[in-house]
Structures are given as structure tokens and as C-alpha cells.
């Protein structure tokens, strides 16, 4: 039996700003993970990662990160990915203030 595939999002760092971005279904980069495309099929996820990696002029270091469906879109499952959606815990810097 094939193992279950954990849903993923394609994420990377923006080339100019260096902050976390996620790939949307419309092939744009979003700074809000909830607007990302949640990939539930492994083959499709691999393909989307390849497509993302080809966009070297916009981002660096694209990879697939575990995610789960939430009420408002994809949510991170691991604390590291969770921190990337917010910013550091010692100052109100990064996405926790930029997105609001």
C-alpha cells in the first residue's frame, strides 16, 4: 500500500527582501501562507517545486514544506514553518506586523 502523502506548500525566500514567500495556484508568490496552493498529490507537488525552482529571478531556495488545510487556507504543521509565517519572537518585526 502506498504511504499517505502529507500535504505540502511550495515555499522559498524572496530574492530581494529575503523573506518567506509561498507559491499560489495562480503562479504568484504570496507573503501569506493562507493564500498558498495546498498540494495534496505527490507528483503534482514535485512538479510545482520544479516550476518554482525555475523562477530563479524571483526567489531563492524553494522547497516543499508540510502543511495542513485550515479554515482560511493552508497552515504550517511544524514550528519552524510556523515561525516563518510570523517572524521572530523577540521583536514585533517581520510578517506578524507587516501582514496586519
Amino acid at each position: 500500500m502506498a504511504r499517505t502523502f502529507t500535504p505540502k506548500v511550495v515555499t522559498a525566500n524572496a530574492l530581494l527582501e529575503g523573506d518567506a514567500v509561498w507559491l499560489t495556484e495562480a503562479n504568484t508568490w504570496t507573503r501569506d501562507i493562507r493564500k498558498a496552493e495546498l498540494l495534496t498529490d505527490e507528483a503534482h507537488a514535485d512538479l510545482r517545486l520544479l516550476e518554482a525552482q525555475a523562477r530563479a529571478g524571483e526567489i531563492a531556495g524553494a522547497y516543499l514544506a508540510d502543511a495542513k488545510p485550515g479554515d482560511n487556507g493552508p497552515e504550517p504543521t511544524h514550528f519552524r514553518e510556523d515561525f516563518r509565517t510570523r517572524g521572530p519572537s523577540n521583536y514585533a518585526h517581520g510578517k506578524q506586523v507587516e501582514l496586519s
Partner: peptide, 16 residues
């Protein structure tokens, strides 16, 4: 990457 690292520039979690 090797060129930026030679000049002390990393790419971290939230920024360079």
C-alpha cells in the same frame, strides 16, 4: 551563494 558567503551575506529564516 558562494560569492555572497565570501562577503558575509547569509539567507536566513526571515531575511538576509
Amino acid at each position: 551563494k558562494p560569492l555572497r558567503l565570501m562577503n558575509g551575506l547569509y539567507l536566513q529564516l526571515h531575511a538576509y
